[in-house]
Write a protein that binds this DNA or RNA. Structure first.
Ligand code: FES
Ligand code: FES
Lengths: 147, 147
DNA sequence: ATAATTAAGGACAAATTTATCCTTAATTAT
DNA sequence: ATAATTAAGGATAAATTTGTCCTTAATTAT
């Protein structure tokens, strides 16, 4: 559904929301271990989420790392998708027509549209905070690596 | 949602179902023009759909080209997705966990699962024939290129 | 001030996906 | 038989995505 980069962005952000505060910042090492992602690549992605999109914060130096403010935690999942350029995906024709449109739709459009709307609603109503809380509550996971 | 290759596969197959019969085969030139796809790449894809997956048929030589039998037209969209290796996509965790599972789910799982099931049902119940018929009936299109 | 720690940033490498081109094989028409 | 037409198949190229590594900058502790 999403690119690797977006998957890492989502998992990392959820993990930071769960563990990172201004006075307990999380390093890239801990993050990439927790979410099972390549550290350098993940660092690149977090850099972008910080710089261009203000979805997370970071500080360099000892005890530095990543964290989120309350406000940032309340962002919907969709904010991360937008930051990662997956917005197009949520607006794309399932058969790859140039444009998903009501006036010149593909033969999957009428049925697919209904499902796509549910996806969008899910991504717009779920916040990072919700997801982080679910993990704290214990029934769900941010990593299910077998070994 | 799907790769370019899969999008071309779907559109090409729908177009062949709509126009190609044993005594009116469609050439790769006409197909790629109709669905707005790169001819050589499309040819590769159709080759595979023919050879490994028996979703379409073809013959070389003058008046050669691609076509489908009645039986082939009745295949669900999912058959093409399977042939194109997109099966994994329909079984994948939306956050990219190693495995989408009920026992160690990600925090999006419970809500996402419901939507994913609708997608799967759509792909399993819609047949190529249905989609081709919709185009014949005139309200939908296999190409909406602007220029 | 100096050393230690951690993210930022840039350059580069590997892998995958998308795409093209050319030769061969199959089929048909003359 | 020969020529013409069309898909099959292989080699290769271009583009994109994924990933690594190294140096620099920022921050903190001594
Ligand atoms: S036109 Fe294809 S999904 Fe809307
Ligand atoms: S575990 Fe993530 S979608 Fe099922």
């Amino acid at each position: 559904m999403f690119s690797k980069a977006t998957e890492y962005a989502l998992r990392a952000t959820i993990f930071i929301a769960q563990k990172g505060t201004e006075d307990n910042k999380i390093g890239i090492g801990e993050i990439s271990k927790a979410i099972d992602s390549p550290p350098s690549f993940t660092a690149k992605i977090l850099q972008a989420l910080r710089k261009n999109n203000k979805i997370i914060r970071s500080v360099s130096g000892p005890n530095g790392g990543f964290y989120m403010t309350e406000k940032m935690r309340k962002l919907p999942v969709r904010a991360i998708l937008e930051a990662m350029g997956e917005n197009e995906m949520l607006d794309k024709c399932v058969l790859g027509l140039e444009k998903c449109s009501e006036t010149k739709p593909c033969p999957m459009h009428s049925k697919y549209k209904i499902i796509k709307e549910q996806l969008i609603e899910l991504f717009e109503t779920k916040t990072i905070q919700h997801l982080a809380d679910d993990i704290k509550n214990g029934a769900v996971f941010i990593n299910n690596k077998s070994k």
